[in-house]
Amino acid sequence: MYEKIFNKYSPEKENLIYILHDIQDANPQNFISEDAVQKVSEYLKISISHIYGVLTFYSMYSTKPRGKNVIRLCEAPPCFLKGSERILKNLCKILNVKVGGTTSDGLFTVELCACLGICGNAPVMMINEDVYGDLTDEKVEKIITEIKGRA
């Protein structure tokens, strides 16, 4: 699997961020494993500690396994003003997880994130690459049920 990703990029340091993105997306558990870091270090000829430095600097990378669907709920002020706290409470309740946690069926991980740039439709969340706006408790439940149905 790594070969295929490496083939897309020349072994230059500036491609590190993109290689990490691709590796994370290709992993069914949405994270970057120690093994992957090792492979990247060999391919780009850079130290493991440099890679971990980059990994931990950027918030979109995870070094821990996550659910198949990563839910990122915006916690920035414009969404907060429109009740994101309440949405979060309900979301955690229906999925029975804590923030940062993964559901026991491995389907969802709930994370908080900074502004997603859809503040005109606050509160907002992103599930993988799909965005959902003007959230209400009912809407969230519907979206979750729909994704569960697809799984």
């Binding site: 920035a76 002020p77 900074a114 740039g117 005109g120």
Partner: peptide, 11 residues
């Protein structure tokens, strides 16, 4: 890189 909470102009 528009990251200011409340801005979605560049997007």
């Amino acid at each position: 890189d528009e990251g200011d909470p409340g801005s979605f102009i560049d997007r």
